[in-house]
Design a binder for these strands. Structure first.
Lengths: 167, 167
DNA sequence: CAAGATTGAAGGCTCAATCTTC
DNA sequence: GAAGATTGAGCCTTCAATCTTG
């Protein structure tokens, strides 16, 4: 690695990192908006629905507990309940009772849901490529992988050593 | 730059970049949630309000047209109108008629708004440092600056040469 | 009583229609 | 008629309360 400067981050927030944070917010807003619009207008599918369908399709036996699915979809429990309500009404997913623990329930993807996912996937993947991936060099991808991983598990709830002392 | 591989990005979306996209979404969701909760619980200020107050404080003469402010706050026009309604009711901002063009109006920050901003700033800046900035090495900051800049102006609305041809 | 999930109430955002001024 | 801003309707999300099962 060519160290342009010291690697040790400073304790105070510097101007450059603050700007990067603002760019991060701006990039996210623009991208999500664009991708959601594309998917919605070309396939009639909201971005959030795509995420749920993809999660279910890739899950073991194509089913997930509501809890897990909420974590996947970055939604609250009640938010997910209602999203699944709407998707079930649209015939994309279906609830399944959980035999082992009758408090809980599974969500599964239906045949129609899988069809919708297959139709939407090319559009969405193209969008990610066009608006996000194609602008990143391999070095930038590496940097993002590392940086985002650190940020994610530092903001994971209930992390040990997250806020322990003053340094 | 130590080129680990070719710099030219491929035309097809690769697995690594797709994962990075998902991490990007996850990181954003976690961060915004955390920062909003901190600001709300420690200072009673929603994150969106902070953004508006900061924008107005730094604007020329501490005022902005509703349009500009909407762009800043990453909100629709009607969304901003309502946000300003709530903030005006809370005494943080005030609308000002625009003499030159009587269709438009300005929003300004009030003394109380400036007070709230001064109280909130340390909390928010600390949050950005703790949950985001401090995890980034200088090299990662450089990579993010470049990558995000490209992504942002590729998704800027009405960009020339954005979707013109196939290669 | 705790855990998984849902429901009621309320807040906040967006699209489309509207109002006022250019 | 177009532009700046607002309003009405509807959708989506969250918190807190609730229901059911462990």
């Amino acid at each position: 690695v060519t160290t342009t400067e010291a690697v040790r981050p400073s304790k105070r927030l510097d101007e450059r990192r603050l700007k990067v944070w603002q760019s991060f917010l701006r990039a996210h807003a623009g991208l999500v908006n664009t991708l959601d619009n594309e998917l919605e207008s070309e396939r009639g599918l909201p971005l959030a629905w795509y995420g749920v369908l993809l999660g279910l399709e890739q899950a073991t036996e194509r089913k997930m507990r509501m809890q897990e699915l909420a974590g996947m979809a970055l939604l609250s429990f009640s938010g997910l309940t209602r999203l699944v309500d709407r998707m079930e009404e649209a015939g994309m997913v279906k609830r399944l009772p959980c035999k082992q623990d009758r408090r809980g329930s599974y969500a599964t993807i239906t045949a129609e849901g899988r069809r919708a996912l297959r139709r939407a996937a090319p559009v969405h993947l193209r969008g990610i490529q066009e608006h996000f991936a194609k602008h990143l060099t391999n070095d930038e991808v590496s940097a993002l992988e590392k940086a985002l991983a650190k940020v994610i598990d530092a903001s994971a709830p209930g992390q040990p050593g997250c806020c322990d002392d003053e340094e």
